[in-house]
C-alpha cells in the first residue's frame, strides 16, 4: 500500500541531476538577455558592450528624447483606446453568446478566437492591404490623435479575442436565477445587465483590460505594418533607433517597457485568479 502511494508522489527533482540542469538552462536562456538589457541600461558608456560604471544618464536622455517621448505617448494612447474598445466589444459578444441561442452560435463563438491563431505577420499584411483599399483615398488626418486611428483598429482586432475569452469564461459561471430575479423585481434587460451582471463580471473586466493593455503596448509586427511615419509607437521607435546605433538609451527605453509590462501582467494574473472562483 505504502509503495503504491509513493509512486503517485511527484518526483523530487533535486535528487536528479538532469532535470536540475534542464531547469537552470531554461531559466538562463529565458532571462539572461532581459537581465543584461536591464543591467546595461545603467552603463555609463556610449558603446553598448563595455561596462564603464553606473549611471542614470541613459534614463534622462531617453526622457528628453522628443521622438521617444512622442512614441511612448502614442503607445499609451493606443493601448488605452484599444483596451476600452475591446472591453466593450468583448462584453457584448460574451453576453450575446451566453444570453441568446441562435443559428450559427457555435460558429460565431469559435470565429471570435480566430485572430489568436492567425500568424501576426498575416494579420499585419492583411490589415495593411485592407486599410489601403478602404482608407486609401481618404485621409484620416495626420494630426494627433487622428493619425493613430488605424493602429487602434488594428490593435482591437487582436486584443478583442482575448478579452472576449476571459469574459466568456466568467459569464458562463453566472446563475440565470440572478438575472431572472432582477427582471422579477422590475428591472428591464438593460437595467438588469448593469445592476447585476456587470458587477459579477468585474474581476474578468480588470484581468482582461490588463491583458489587452499589455498586448497593445508590446505589439510590434502588426503595428509596424499599419503605422505611418507620423504615427510611431514605442516598440517601433526602439526598433528604428537600433538601426542607426545601438546605444544604452535603447536599453533604458526597453527597460521601461519591460517594467510596465511585468507590472501589468502580475496585476492581471492576481485578478485573473478570481475570474474562475466564487
Amino acid at each position: 500500500m505504502s509503495k503504491k502511494k509513493r509512486q503517485n508522489e511527484p518526483l523530487n527533482y533535486s535528487k536528479h541531476i538532469l532535470p536540475r540542469l534542464m531547469f537552470w538552462f531554461a531559466v538562463i536562456m529565458l532571462f539572461f538577455p532581459i537581465i543584461s538589457i536591464v543591467i546595461y541600461s545603467f552603463n555609463d558608456s556610449k558603446r553598448i558592450t563595455i561596462w564603464r560604471g553606473f549611471t542614470f544618464n541613459n534614463y534622462t536622455k531617453a526622457f528628453f528624447d522628443l521622438g521617444l517621448r512622442e512614441a511612448f505617448i502614442n503607445s499609451l494612447t493606443i493601448a488605452a483606446a484599444s483596451t476600452v474598445i475591446s472591453l466593450v466589444l468583448g462584453i457584448m459578444s460574451a453576453y450575446l453568446l451566453w444570453r441568446f441561442r441562435f443559428w450559427g452560435r457555435t460558429f460565431y463563438g469559435s470565429m471570435l478566437s480566430l485572430p489568436i491563431v492567425v500568424p501576426e505577420i498575416c494579420m499585419g499584411v492583411s490589415l495593411l492591404l485592407f486599410f489601403n483599399k478602404v482608407f486609401g483615398g481618404i485621409s484620416l488626418g495626420s494630426s494627433w490623435p487622428a493619425n493613430l486611428i488605424l493602429i487602434i483598429i488594428a490593435h482591437v482586432t487582436f486584443c478583442f479575442p482575448f478579452v472576449s475569452m476571459v469574459i466568456s469564461a466568467r459569464i458562463n459561471l453566472y446563475s440565470f436565477d440572478q438575472l431572472e430575479a432582477a427582471f422579477d423585481l422590475g428591472a428591464n434587460e438593460v437595467r438588469a445587465f448593469f445592476d447585476v451582471v456587470l458587477p459579477f463580471l468585474k474581476p474578468a473586466l480588470i484581468a482582461s483590460a490588463m491583458l489587452a493593455f499589455t498586448l497593445s503596448l508590446d505589439d510590434f509586427v502588426i503595428t509596424f505594418f499599419t503605422s505611418g511615419p507620423d504615427s510611431v509607437t514605442f516598440p517601433v521607435k526602439v526598433y528604428s533607433m537600433l538601426r542607426f546605433s545601438v546605444t544604452p538609451v535603447v536599453n533604458a527605453a526597453s527597460t521601461i517597457l519591460i517594467v510596465i509590462t511585468v507590472l501589468l501582467t502580475l496585476g492581471g494574473m492576481a485578478v485573473q485568479k478570481k475570474v474562475l472562483i466564487d
Binding site: 436565477d177 431572472e180 447585476v196 459579477f200
Partner: peptide, 11 residues
C-alpha cells in the same frame, strides 16, 4: 418570486 436558489445579489 422567491427562487429555489434564493438568487440574493452577492454584491
Amino acid at each position: 418570486m422567491v427562487f429555489q436558489s434564493y438568487a440574493v445579489f452577492p454584491h
